Computed example of a mutant assay.
Amino acid sequence: MFYLLILINLISFIIFGLDKKKSIKHQRRISENTLLGVSFIGGTAGAIAGMLIFRHKISKGSFLLKFGFVVMLQVVLILLFQKHFK
Rank of each mutant, 00 (worst) to 15 (best):
G17E: 10
F69W: 10
I53P: 01
M1V: 05
G50Y: 08
L65N: 11
V75C: 14
M72E: 07
M1L: 06
L36V: 01
K57H: 08
I24N: 13
R55V: 11
F69N: 05
I6L: 14
Q74F: 09
H56K: 13
L5K: 08
V70W: 06
R29W: 02
E32Q: 07
G46E: 10
V38Q: 07
I8N: 01
Q27G: 08
Y3I: 07
S59F: 13
F85W: 14
L73M: 14
L52K: 15
R28P: 04
E32L: 06
L64V: 10
L52G: 06
G61Y: 13
I53V: 15
G43N: 03
H56S: 10
H56D: 12
G43C: 02
L73P: 01
G46Q: 11
I30D: 03
T34H: 04
Q82V: 13
I6R: 02
K57G: 01
N33Y: 02
L4F: 06
L65D: 06
M1Q: 08
K60E: 11
L18I: 15
G43M: 06
I78S: 03
F54T: 11
G68D: 06
G46Y: 06
G68A: 04
V71G: 02
K25F: 03
I58G: 03
L77M: 12
L77V: 11
I30L: 08
L18T: 11
R29T: 07
G17Q: 08
F67K: 10
K20Q: 01
S62P: 06
Q74V: 10
L4K: 03
F69H: 04
M51R: 09
I14E: 05
N33S: 09
S23L: 03
D19R: 04
F63A: 00
I48P: 03
A49M: 15
H56M: 10
V71R: 10
I53M: 12
R55A: 11
F40M: 14
R55I: 09
D19S: 03
F16M: 07
A47W: 09
L7V: 07
F16W: 05
I41E: 00
K57F: 07
N33H: 06
T44Y: 09
S23A: 15
Q74M: 11
G46N: 09
L36T: 02
I24Q: 14
L5P: 00
I24C: 09
I6G: 00
G50M: 07
H26L: 15
L77R: 05
G46H: 08
T44Q: 14
Q82M: 14
K83M: 10
S39A: 15
L7D: 00
E32C: 02
L5C: 03
K83P: 00
T44A: 15
I15F: 11
G17W: 05
L77C: 09
S12E: 04
I53Q: 11
A49Q: 14
G61I: 13
L73S: 14
